[in-house]
Amino acid sequence: MSVRHRIPDEILAEYAAGDLAEAFGLVVASHVSLCTESRERLEEIEAVGGAILEDVEAEPMGAGSLEATLAKIADGPPPEAPLTFSSTDAGTYILPKPIRDYIGGDVESVKWRSVGMGVKQAILPTSPEATARLLYIPAGCEMPDHGHRGMEMTVVLQGAFLDGEDRFGRGDVEVADEDLAHMPVADVGEDCICLAAADAPLRFSGLLPRLFQPFLKI
């Protein structure tokens, strides 16, 4: 199984520069964990950051800064943030490590909330500029037809969804902006789990989904 829908370079560059909101960063990190080609591209795009760092007009450091830094070093490394999940655990997972770190485990640890019609979701605790939520969509089930005011990025973790002519499987990413009104449908065969990040409330075009919107918290 290979990843076919990848994250565009300019979004990888925002991630590499540390300018992407946390929720979108989580989609990028998940996709890169599942796609070797994008990992290589990210490394190249980070190398551009290194080249610019070499080239930048430097700001002189204060007097005694080297000594101050050596004193910091002598104090030892700062405590690492405890890992919520060990990267060395053997086994295969549905959720890639960046998401497991938010959940504290794999799919069985997700605290799903039903949002009707068999669809379940779990909102992950990220910075408020954008929302990240895991979605569980039963095989063959339609997602509400919706457009966007902002950007939405979705990475598939299990199963697949179809959107128009395109099929998105594990590791694939769909990037949608306000020009795209789309209608994702979970592929038959397997229930679909994906992570969707959005920076503005979704705008559903049907009346019924709109009634659901406050309830969906999206």
Partner: peptide, 18 residues
């Protein structure tokens, strides 16, 4: 860059799996 996300943006930075 990681220090910038941490200090200036005050966010967690999701990193790809090693």
């Amino acid at each position: 860059r990681n220090r910038k996300v941490d200090m200036l943006r005050k966010q967690r930075r999701p990193e790809p799996e090693d």
